Every structure is written in C-alpha cells, then in structure tokens.
Simulated scan of single mutants.
Amino acid sequence: MGGVSATIAATLVRMLDPAVADVRRAVREALAPFADSGARILIALSGGADSLALASAAAHEAPKVGLEPITVTIDHGLQDGSAEIAERAADLARGFGIRTARIERVEVGSAGGPEAAARDARYAALRRVASEEDAVAVLVGHTLDDQAETVLLGLARGSGSASLSGMSPHSLDGLGLAWIRPMLGLRRETTAAFCAAEGLEPWQDPHNSDERFSRVRVRERVLPVLESELGPGIAEALWRTAEQLREDDEAFADMIDETIEDIVEHAEAGIAVSVPALHANPTALRHRIIRHVVESEFGVSLTRLQTLEIARLVTDWKGQGPLDLPGFQASRRGNLVIFTASAQEITQST
C-alpha cells in the first residue's frame, strides 16, 4: 500500500506545472530561516499576477514549516472600484486557506510625485499592519523584471551603486522587520504561468500600462528596444549586475561599520567626522562614509555631485564656507567636517 502511495505522490510531483514548482520552491527557500518558529508572515497582496502567485505559494508552503501566512491588500483609492478590487483579492486569499486577509485603505499624498507617494503610503501601511499582527516578515512579489527596471531607473538617475544594486531579496529595517522578495530570480512570465496553471484570474492594474509613469516607460519602451538592439537576455543581465553590486555594497557596508565608530563624534544639532581619518581612506570608501553619515543622520540620499562637494572639504579645502544642502549643512572646522541640520529642519522637529 505504501508503495502505491509513493507512486501516486511521485506522479503528482511529475505533473506539477513547472511555473508552480518554481514559485513554490522560491517561497519555500525564502521561508526556511523562519521554519518551526510559529511566527506570522505578512504577504502584500494587490491581486495582480505576481502577488497572487506569491500568496498562493506562501499559503501552500508556510503551514508546512509551522508559519502562519496572513495577507494585506492596500487600497490606495486612486481608481474607481478600488474597494471591490481589494475585496476580491482578500477573497482569493481566503480561498487559498489564509484565515486573516486584511484590507487597508490609505491616503496617498503628493510628495515626490504619484509613484513615490503611493509607494510611501503602501509601505507605511505594510509596516503598521505587520506590527499590529506581530508578523516577523513581509513578503512582496517583486520579480526579476522589476529588478531590471529598478537597475535601469537607478542608472538614469546616476545615483551610484546603491541604486544599481537594486532591491535586496532579504533585508531588515530599523525595527527588525524582515522584508523578503522570494521571486527576484523569477521572470514575470513565470508568475503569469503560475496563475494560469492554478486557474487564477489576476487583476490587471491599468497603472501598469500608463506611460505617465517612468517605470512603465522603461517596461514598455526601453527594455524592448534594448532586447531588440542588443539581443535577448537584457533583463537577466541587469539582474546579475544587481546581484554583483549588492555583494560589493555589503562588503563596503562591513568596512564602514568597522571604521565609522572610530572617526565619528556627536556635534551640536548634528555629527562630526575626522578629516584626517576620511583623508586616509580610499576615495570610494570616503565617499561611502559621507553618504552613510548623511543618510543615517538626516535621511537624505546624496547625489554624486553633492558627495564630491562635501569630499572637497576633506581633500581640497581652501577656506571655503559651509555647503547648504537639502535638510542639512556641511562645513569644515579645523580637523572636522561638521554636518548639522538646517534651521528649517530644527524648527520642524521642535
């Protein structure tokens, strides 16, 4: 009897659609660090093909390793019928066997443009729900195609290797919440095939074809031209580039962590960095330390030009005055570069 059961099981494995197998395997590997903890994991579910495949695979894999999957669908309220779309996604999650399928309505502001404002509202809601549900991790459905688009957008901004390294498959935020992207190594066509194999009908977000958005233009215009002119495999090449640069960034981050405690000290309304110590470091590490200090202290991502101007206070100082930059000021005082919050920032924080 046992032999018959084993034969049936083997046959079912052979019959499993390759796309379903690929997505489930990716999710299973991503969940492995949390296995047998009894923890809750939160899945961001929009109702599109990527997030549906993710939620379905997580519903299948998480209970096997003692984890409880829950979903949250963010209703941005930007389209007619958004409440119904969100409810349909939650119903699908319940159909997967997920008991807790939440819907969160958010207010989208205007800071940074519509894409950035919607993203900020969405991630704030995900963090809030994760806290309310005591989730240890948030799973999001970004794919290899999303990663390729992110790398190209970073290249266009000229914002350095941090942007070109793209999204991390696994990261921790300041609150210790894990952000996991199990499908970064899978193509978008795989999640579409998963849904087809499982009989799921994904929601087609009209914003995903709205060429007012830069990411859509990259997807619909830029990548197809690159594929046509340079040959197939561009998305995979961009993904590999991101992987390699992320390894480099992680190595630099370790070096910065080892260095920064010895060269940084607190200053009034800001922070100070030793000029001799900065000068002694290689140029690449010096620039990364400057960017790290500014990002950590003021939440500002420096451009290449801004980084170089601050570095001149170290390497080419001829008595020049303070640099007024967004949210903060950088100045040279003796053997220190002083970073202080701008007067406006100080006023807003008091």
Rank of each mutant, 00 (worst) to 15 (best):
R105L: 00
V294E: 06
I43V: 15
T11H: 12
V273P: 13
V151S: 07
R246V: 05
T150V: 08
R333L: 03
I98V: 07
V106T: 01
V294N: 14
T315H: 11
P282Y: 04
A156N: 09
S331T: 08
D248V: 09
A124D: 15
G154I: 08
V273N: 01
G321H: 01
E201R: 14
Q204I: 07
I310V: 15
W203A: 15
A235W: 01
G154E: 00
A343K: 00
A62Y: 04
L54N: 13
I271N: 00
A124P: 01
P224G: 05
R187N: 07
R94M: 08
I70G: 10
I256C: 08
L186A: 02
V275Q: 06
L126R: 07
E211R: 14
A35L: 01
R119K: 11
A311W: 02
T7W: 07
R215L: 02
S51P: 09
V72M: 05
G199C: 09
L177Y: 07
W179A: 06
D120G: 06
T340W: 02
W239Y: 15
A21H: 04
R24D: 14
F34V: 04
G95Q: 13
F34G: 01
P63I: 12
E189Q: 09
L12H: 03
T191C: 07
R212I: 00
S171R: 14
Q329P: 00
R94S: 07
L308R: 15
S168N: 09
G81I: 09
A93Y: 03
F328S: 03
A156E: 13
G77P: 05
G321V: 00
L92I: 15
K318M: 03
R332S: 00
I8K: 13
L302H: 05
R28K: 12
M183Y: 03
A280T: 04
T303N: 11
D210N: 13
A251T: 14
T191R: 02
E247R: 10
